[in-house]
Write a protein that binds this DNA or RNA. Sequence first.
DNA 1: CCAAAAGTGTTTAACGTACACCCATGT
DNA 2: ACATGGGTGTACGTTAAACACTTTTGG
Lengths: 227, 227
Amino acid sequence: MFEYEFPRPAVAADIAAFALDNGKLKILLVRRGVEPFLGEWALPGGFVLEDETIEACAARELREETGVDGESLIQFGIYSEPGRDPRKWIISIAYVTAVHLAQVVLKSGTDAAAAEWFSVDQLPAVLAFDHHDIIKDAIEALRNNALLLERQRRDVPVLAFRLLGETFSLSALQAAVEVIVGNERDKRNFRKQVVEHWLEPTGTVSTGRHRPALNYRLRPKDPGLHE
Amino acid sequence: MFEYEFPRPAVAADIAAFALDNGKLKILLVRRGVEPFLGEWALPGGFVLEDETIEACAARELREETGVDGESLIQFGIYSEPGRDPRKWIISIAYVTAVHLAQVVLKSGTDAAAAEWFSVDQLPAVLAFDHHDIIKDAIEALRNNALLLERQRRDVPVLAFRLLGETFSLSALQAAVEVIVGNERDKRNFRKQVVEHWLEPTGTVSTGRHRPALNYRLRPKDPGLHE
DNA sequence: CCAAAAGTGTTTAACGTACACCCATGT
DNA sequence: ACATGGGTGTACGTTAAACACTTTTGG
């Protein structure tokens, strides 16, 4: 048996980038500027180049579309069903991340004519490829990784914080978590756990229409717990 | 911007298949029959074909090497570092699984000259590609997925059971878990939890050198808990 | 002074964990 | 009979969960 040339798939990284916009959970989609599915909405993404890892590719594509540095990209799926692209053989590696809307500057990437945030419950009826499936899985992955409490390992990137800015009030954080996981949770218990495990107060307050709220930031690292 | 032909990587599925052999945790390696790394030990695996998913490819490769049906393949990593293959551009998708040694019939696959089980603490000094890294990650993935107690979600495939046969004694199960996770655990607590959550007695006993042990099997499914 | 969000402790239930002795078999 | 692994319950500590009122600001 000797080495011969197999047919090779194109390999793409697709990114499900979530943001919080006025209390709604949104996902970034781009309008495709190339065939196939020209003009349809799709997840941002692109083909992997020979001198980068797939994760680096995802980070690059995200940066090209949003200007946001692609840290905390979490790989959650691989889509390789034959025929998922009508004309070529394409395998997609899917990543999920979360970004703070305020620091996003939407740009059109190389293959995208436009980029837009969509409410996850008001997606376009038609999406390119199998991106409907991917988004469904992405939301689940977001839940699994954004969810901070409830038996969560402490070593994984925690996406919920990335939806917010550098500093935030406890209510803002709780609202973010509740939007992601769907259900409500007890204010006092939430604060207790989240302050104890993740946060430090900044000293500043965020003044709103009512009583000012203390601001918190993500504590750098719990020095040396578990191993 | 229009569509042009990118260079394309070869995409492979690599499988870290674990088994229990006389109380030792072993991993299946094959001796490569092709360049590069001809003659070196490597994880079983092979290139994805155009008419199959990557997971199906992993299942097929595993079947070719071991005769074991590749259920419960869990994808745990993607290896795409440029230069990880000295001559070609190859991206590897890595899967972990566990098999019951008794039902394995080792065969040499298409690209492999021989297959052998290695203790995870006595691996060959030199392995093909970055398979040392992959194995390290695979053991971690095995731990994460085989581990049954301790705040485990119930929906994921549980690899520990796959190390054993259809039926097994509680001690055999506990031994398997302890080998995987490294540390010991309390017999009474282990039995309580594992019987409550996963097992049903078969009625048979496994007679050994001492008092016979009741056999158990994995209970099909807890009908409708959570959601 | 009213509306709206911020802030704050205690009690109870569930779960995980530690722990020691008798039993059934083969030799 | 004895060595070896099989089998069994209870008590304690920790963690999660339920629960209601006071405080501070803007309008």
